[in-house]
Every structure is written in structure tokens, then in C-alpha cells.
Amino acid sequence: MKFISWNIDSLNAALTSDSNRAIMTRDVIKTIIDENPDIIAIQETKIPQTGLNKKHKAKLEEFFPAYDYVHVTSREGARKSYAGCMTLYKKDLKCMESFPEIDAPDTMDLEGRIVTLEFEDFYFNQVYTPNAGNELKRLNLRQIWDEKFAQYLSTLDKNKPVISAGDFNVAHREIDLAHPDNNHFSAGFTDEERQGFTNLLAKGFIDTFRYVNGDVKDKYTWWAQRVKTSKINNSGWRIDYFLVSERIKDKIKRSDMIDSGDRQDHTPIVLEIEI
């Protein structure tokens, strides 16, 4: 099976806007469709709390005619048109969906951050992990999230193997970002966030990119939009991951990034695995 995950930074805009950025986003969607994945995980959809409107649904059918989908948005109590996740899956696949709450702090359980599909032989989970925020204002809350999410995945793993994808908002190792020395106190590379990811892996999960590609450097999934030269100079971070249960690691065939051209921010990632 082939899986693709992407923090799209507004599916809403991609479906409703004709801005230059929205057009670039739709070009990346075409690239994803050309890969013909079985499952597509999309984070940061920014769909309004009122849900998908007629235009959204028509465009989804236009772009993804071979797929059914499930999605979760932010709810009352959280910021509006914030976060959100959508999972698309080929129409011949049979699964049960859930939108777990993990007893996360603050409004994190209301922000539409987790979708899980249960298939006969495995779980597919996608996550949009909360950012520690400007001046690390949410770092303490983020540490609680990391503990709760690791517990949740571990619970799934007791029943059947897990594939978990998404924007984990952490560069785990120094080789996972271009300038580690300058970022030890930046959101996404604090000791606390890195340890949280280490603790998650220790519960029996594999970072598939590192498993397949070893200690390759200069391979990233995110480049800052606000720095115009960040992608040109490959001044990036690897913060998007496919994790799998350790007991299925030998089934992994490919784990890599997909070229998103000139579009900055996140690039899609792909996993191929015999499952």
C-alpha cells in the first residue's frame, strides 16, 4: 500500500481561492494524485467549524474522484478555522473511522488534530501535533500532549500494528534541520520536544525515513514561508513523519519526500509498505 501525508496549510484555501499560493497548492495536489496513493492524510485543513460547504464538496469530488474521506475540524471552544485533519482513502477500502480525544490539555482535544482509521490488519492514524508556539508559550502543554498521544498510539498497538503519519512539529535529531546550533531554544527543537519524540519511539515505533535512508542529511519536509530564500538554500526542517509499529518495519519499501516545486512550507511525504 502507498500512503501520502501532507500539512497543506489550508485545504480551505486550496478549494476556494484563486490566489497564487492556492494555485501552487493545487499543483501539489496533482502531483499527489499522480502518485496514486491508497490513503492521503492532510493536516491543517482550516475548514470552518460549520464544516464542508457545497463548493468544498464539489472541489473534493473534482480533485479526488477515486476517494472517500473523513475529516475533523476545530470545535466550539477552540479557535475557528484552525488546525483540522482529513483522511482520504480509495473507495474500495473498508474501514471504521474515529476522532479520538486523548485527554489533552487546554483546547487541544477541540482543535481537530487526530483521525484514526481501523482496517482489518492495521490502524492508520494521522496527527497534527500542537506547536510549542511563539516564545514557547505552549511548551508545557505540548509536553503533556506528547505523553497523552504516545499513550494513545501504544494502546492501539496492543490490538494491531499502527501506521501513524503527520506533522509532529519536532525535528528529532540535529541532522533533521539545517541549523541545529541556532535553534536549541526554538519551537520544534527544544530538548523537551525532542525527548517527547524519543519517548514515543521507545514505545515500539520506527521513524520510517531513518530506517530506510539511514543518516542521510539535507532532506527536509518544511521551509519557512517568511524567509524567501529558505527553500532555495535548503534551510529546512524534517518535522513530518511516517511512524510504524516496530514489528512491521521489515515490510517498509519506501519512505521519502515528494517534490513540491517552488511552494514553501511543508512538502508531502510518502510511505510504501507491504501491509
Results as ranks from 00 to 15, higher is better:
79 R>E: 07
73 T>S: 03
88 L>W: 05
72 V>L: 04
113 R>L: 05
108 M>I: 13
51 G>Y: 11
55 K>P: 00
115 V>R: 00
63 F>M: 05
71 H>Q: 08
67 Y>P: 04
72 V>F: 00
121 D>G: 07
49 Q>T: 15
55 K>Y: 01
64 F>L: 10
94 K>D: 11
79 R>S: 06
65 P>T: 15
120 E>D: 14
45 T>D: 09
134 N>F: 06
53 N>H: 03
61 E>A: 15
144 I>C: 08
110 L>D: 07
87 T>G: 06
125 N>D: 03
147 E>S: 13
60 L>C: 05
73 T>E: 02
148 K>Y: 00
66 A>W: 15
139 L>S: 11
91 K>Y: 06
86 M>D: 01
145 W>A: 12
77 G>D: 05
60 L>G: 09
53 N>W: 04
92 D>C: 04
48 P>D: 00
59 K>P: 03
64 F>G: 00
104 A>N: 07
81 S>R: 11
59 K>V: 09
111 E>R: 01
111 E>F: 10
50 T>V: 12
85 C>N: 04
47 I>D: 03
140 N>S: 15
87 T>K: 01
64 F>M: 08
79 R>N: 05
64 F>H: 07
70 V>N: 02
102 I>K: 02
90 K>A: 07
107 T>M: 09
132 A>P: 13
118 E>V: 08
140 N>G: 10
105 P>F: 06
122 F>G: 03
133 G>Q: 06
83 A>C: 11
80 K>A: 14
116 T>F: 06
136 L>Y: 05
46 K>E: 01
45 T>Q: 11
134 N>H: 03
128 Y>M: 04
140 N>F: 12
99 F>K: 12
129 T>F: 14
107 T>N: 14
106 D>E: 14
54 K>N: 13
